[in-house]
Amino acid sequence: MLANLASYLVFTVLGLAKGSRLGEAANFFVYDTIKIFLLLITIIFCVAVIRSYFPPEETKRFLSRGKEYVGNVLAALLGIVTPFCSCSAVPLFIGFVESGVPLGVTFSFLVSSPMVNEIALIMLWGLFGWKIALIYIGSGVMIAIISGIVIGKLRLERFVQDYVYTIKMGETAATEQTFRERLKNARNYTVPLLKKIWPYVIAGIGIGAFIHGYAPEGFLVKYAGPQNPFAVPLAVLVGVPLYSNAAGVIPITQALMEKGMATGTVLAFMMAVTALSLPEAIILKNVLKLRLLITFFGIVAAAITLTGYLFNAIL
């Protein structure tokens, strides 16, 4: 139905020719824009309501009782639903460490929380289908669990900035919300978030549409297809410093995949973009000494690269 609406707008209202480069690019742009925004509005709102039941203060209390392994699994799963923005990374990290959550478990959470987020999922589901979206969640959670366990085993506690251990946290009385308040808060969350990300979404879909209409079929097969062994590490290297804007990046990767980029390479690129970024590194430098910060980025980047190879091999 949406596809019909888009082609009606492009080919009938705008009068662009079917099969022409401009027509195909415009059709891609209009269809994706409508679909993505409908999905974004609905799902961000619903997730915001669900999230209000999992405040980080509760998550912390829950995880501080856990041990390693089970704790890593729980932390990675809770990372999906717990609200996270990079500006909260520092208080969150300190809060976890202070209440006795093991370092490795804290990292499982820090990896999964930004990587497996609802915006990435919506974009993947809307543009690639539910299978890719599920693979993304599944491997994201696995990467978070494994990276956290490895960091825990390395015993890197002394590379946390010393002042972190001196902070004493006060108790906050949990504020109970009525369902009405949850809905209202969810609206107050959704509207500004959409205002913030819409230009990136439009820009991403625009670039994707351009590639879709103008790049020759299969022009990426040679460079980024499954036969090139360097494609995955290269995609990860490019993706790591980029600031996570899943909303902007995913439409571009969809078009790249269409032109021959291998699925595993696309997944690795998206994970690198959302899980790790330069601004996040700068923020985390406040609580982590350089060595731990580099170890953290190295382990996660390695895990993402392996995931990319794995899916290139089996898909």
């Binding site: 405040p55 980080p56 912390k60 609200p83 520092v90 208080p91 300190i94 902070i167 946290m169 406040n286």
Partner: peptide, 26 residues
């Protein structure tokens, strides 16, 4: 950050009125 943590707040921004945390993370 040390001051913020003293209030037990883990998601910012938070609003504190006369020493009592009123809202967190929104």
């Amino acid at each position: 950050i040390t001051e913020i943590m003293r209030y037990g707040v883990m998601s910012t921004p938070a609003l504190v009125i006369d020493g009592v945390v009123k809202t967190v993370g929104k």
